[in-house]
Amino acid sequence: MTDSNLPERPLYEAACHCGTVRFSLRLRDGLKTARRCNCSYCRMRGAVAVSANLDDIQVTHGSEELTLYTFNTGEAKHYFCSKCGIYTFHQRRSAPDQYGVNVACIEGMSPFDFAEVPVNEGKTHPKDRIGGGSAIAGWLRYEANPESRERASG
């Protein structure tokens, strides 16, 4: 759970692409939890996720438009907007007391804000791995093209 000795965690506003689903959240450990995963679902979804405790997300608008997707064990609960199809957050199988939140839904954030994001080994889920625990499959790196920055400012 959240350590009460930590400084106040900021409240973020978030929404799907069309704005039908809106939610507010506090991150568990700021942006330090940013990650991707290479399991079959995350590989296709392609989102960078950060962690929030279950009680730190409040859907403020459009909860009736959230659609649930589960697969395999059915433990992870993936929510997305039924109107625009954007993945908003999911209850994690590896940490059921947490949500993984799509960084791109958080106001003012983008997956391209991260120079490097670890990619968790999800082909064999940590709960299914002998000895458990997470492993890093690799890193996703982003470097802005300086030419496109020059064009945007000029």
Rank of each mutant, 00 (worst) to 15 (best):
residue 2 T to E: 14
residue 3 D to Y: 06
residue 3 D to L: 09
residue 4 S to Q: 07
residue 4 S to P: 15
residue 10 P to T: 07
residue 11 L to D: 08
residue 14 A to R: 10
residue 14 A to G: 12
residue 15 A to T: 06
residue 18 C to V: 03
residue 21 V to A: 01
residue 22 R to V: 06
residue 26 R to I: 11
residue 33 T to K: 01
residue 33 T to H: 01
residue 36 R to Q: 14
residue 40 S to T: 10
residue 44 M to K: 15
residue 45 R to N: 12
residue 47 A to T: 03
residue 49 A to K: 02
residue 49 A to S: 14
residue 51 S to E: 11
residue 51 S to A: 13
residue 52 A to L: 00
residue 52 A to M: 03
residue 55 D to L: 03
residue 58 Q to F: 00
residue 58 Q to H: 06
residue 61 H to W: 02
residue 63 S to M: 11
residue 67 T to D: 03
residue 69 Y to T: 05
residue 69 Y to M: 04
residue 70 T to V: 15
residue 71 F to V: 04
residue 72 N to A: 10
residue 72 N to Y: 09
residue 72 N to V: 08
residue 77 K to S: 07
residue 81 C to F: 01
residue 83 K to D: 13
residue 84 C to R: 07
residue 86 I to F: 04
residue 88 T to A: 12
residue 90 H to N: 12
residue 92 R to S: 10
residue 93 R to P: 02
residue 97 D to T: 10
residue 97 D to N: 12
residue 98 Q to H: 11
residue 100 G to F: 04
residue 101 V to K: 07
residue 103 V to T: 05
residue 107 E to P: 00
residue 108 G to N: 07
residue 109 M to S: 09
residue 110 S to L: 08
residue 111 P to V: 03
residue 115 A to G: 15
residue 117 V to P: 13
residue 118 P to G: 01
residue 118 P to A: 05
residue 124 T to M: 13
residue 125 H to N: 09
residue 128 D to T: 00
residue 131 G to Y: 07
residue 133 G to E: 06
residue 134 S to L: 04
residue 139 W to S: 04
residue 141 R to C: 12
residue 142 Y to S: 07
residue 143 E to Y: 00
residue 144 A to W: 00
residue 145 N to L: 11
residue 147 E to K: 13
residue 151 R to L: 15
residue 153 S to Y: 01
